[in-house]
Amino acid sequence: MSPRALLRTFSELCITIGTLIVLFVVHLLFWTGIRAQSATDREIDRLEAGWAAEPLEPPAPSRGGGPPPAAPVEYEPGQPFAVMYIPRFGEAWDWPVLQGTGTDTLKKGLGHYASTAVLGAKGNFAVAGHRRTHGDPFKDFPKLRPGDEVVLTDGTTWFTYRIASKPYRTVPSDVGVIEPMPRPLKDEAAAFDEPGRYLTLTTCEPEWGSSHRLVVWAYLDATQSVTDGKPPGLHS
C-alpha cells in the first residue's frame, strides 16, 4: 500500500466515524422523540379504546370524600394502565403509565415500579420517566413545586395527587424513596411522617447524566369518578 493510499483510507475512516457520531446524535435527539411520540399516542389510544370497550365498574361513591376502597388490581407487565397529566408541564402533557421500568417499557411511556403500590392504594405508587431522549417526558422536572398537581386516570377514577416536596436530589442507590412510607437517605428530606397514599416520581440528574436521581413525592388529595368529569386541576 502506498503512503497515498494509506492516507486516503485513514481520511475516509475519520469521515465515516464522524458521520456515525453525527447520525447517533440525530438518533438520540430527534428520532427517539419521534418514535416516543407515536408510541405514547398508540398506548393512550389503546387504553382509551379498552376503556370505551369495557367500562370498568365505577367504584361506589365514597363517603366523606375519602379515596375509594382499594380493589385488588394487577397490572400486566409492559402494558399501559393509566394516563398521567401534570399541569405544570403544560396542558398538552399527557403520558401513558406502563407496568415495569425496563428499557423497552420506558421507550413507550412512563414506567410504574412493579414492586410498589397500585394507583390510589395505600402505600407508594412510584413512577420513573426519561428526563431526556425518548420524548423528554420529565424534562421540566426541576420546575415541580409543592402544591403542584399530578393527575392520573385509570379509566374509572381520576386521582389527583398533590406534590409535597421540592425535587430531591439523591444517589441512584437511595431505594428508600420508593418505599411505601418513603425513607430517603437524608432524614430531613422525608416528605411524610406517617403512612398514607403516596406517589413518587423519579428521573435522572443531571439532565444528560446518570450520577444522581431527582425525586418528588405527592400525596393523594382527591379522587372522583370519570362520570363526574375531569378534576378542576385539568383545563378544558
Binding site: L23, F24, H27, G102, T103, C204, S210, R213
Partner: peptide, 26 residues
C-alpha cells in the same frame, strides 16, 4: 444503524438511568 445498531448502543450511554437501583433497571 437506526433500526438495530443505535437502539443497541443507546443503553450503554447514561441517559436512560431514571430509576433508583434494585428494580428491573432502565
Amino acid at each position: 444503524l437506526f433500526q438495530y445498531v443505535f437502539p443497541w448502543a443507546e443503553p450503554l450511554l447514561p441517559f436512560g438511568d431514571v430509576t433508583v437501583d434494585g428494580e428491573g433497571g432502565a
